[in-house]
Amino acid sequence: MIEVQGLRKTFHDRKKGDIPAVKDVSFTCHPGRVFGLLGRNGAGKTTTLRMLATILSPTSGTAKVAGFDIVEKPAEVRRRIGYLSGDTKLYDRLTGRELLTYFGTLAGMDPAAIPARIEALAGPFGLADLLDKRVGKMSTGMKQRLSIARVVVHDPEVLIFDEPTSGLDVFGAREVLALVLELKKKGRTVIFSTHIMTEAERICDEIAIIEKGSILRQGTLASLGVGNGSGSLEDVFIEAVKGELDDR
């Protein structure tokens, strides 16, 4: 479970001064559900997710991830999460098996248990032929499957996906979304950021529309009015952020 309460992040720039990236964001993600953070590039999605992954510290506010406070117990949080960003690459000179072993070890797994876990992941993630191949020789789709296997190698309770289909073709993106839905079925808490409306509509149980660091609307697709009078999710999104765009 993820409980976010009044999360705020301000960056400081010597020339521009304080730049608020995330402003008082609050939401809750439940186990067995996919929570979508929908926003344009630069809306504050990545900064929010980086704070939840304890990569960045919040300026104020807090969040509990898997029951642990991200400010007070960041190490406990990190033990229980899997984090994947769409622009994350892998280590080209490692094989698939070496890469999974490395991240399993960093996650604190028992070294003796890692080989069995890798074999268990090989089938569902289609990695059988990739385990002994160097990452640099894999296709983009193969790398993305390996990336997701990397995220779940330690079987985390909470999964944080930051635009994981970025740069993938339609087949690669479908594979990733199918794997995310599989994780949801297994009862994991999934938070998923995207700027692609069809993706959000397809896999998210709840959506928060974020713009300029603030959540403008949030709820289930139905409660946002998608499909019952307000039009498509794209229409709802444009309607929600229109006022903010006028301020540009």
């Binding site: 990569i55 990190r78 690459k89 960093l106 990397r150």
Partner: peptide, 13 residues
Amino acid sequence: RSTLETILASAAT
């Protein structure tokens, strides 16, 4: 390579 975030989000200190 943007791999920094993956290790920062790991359980390693």
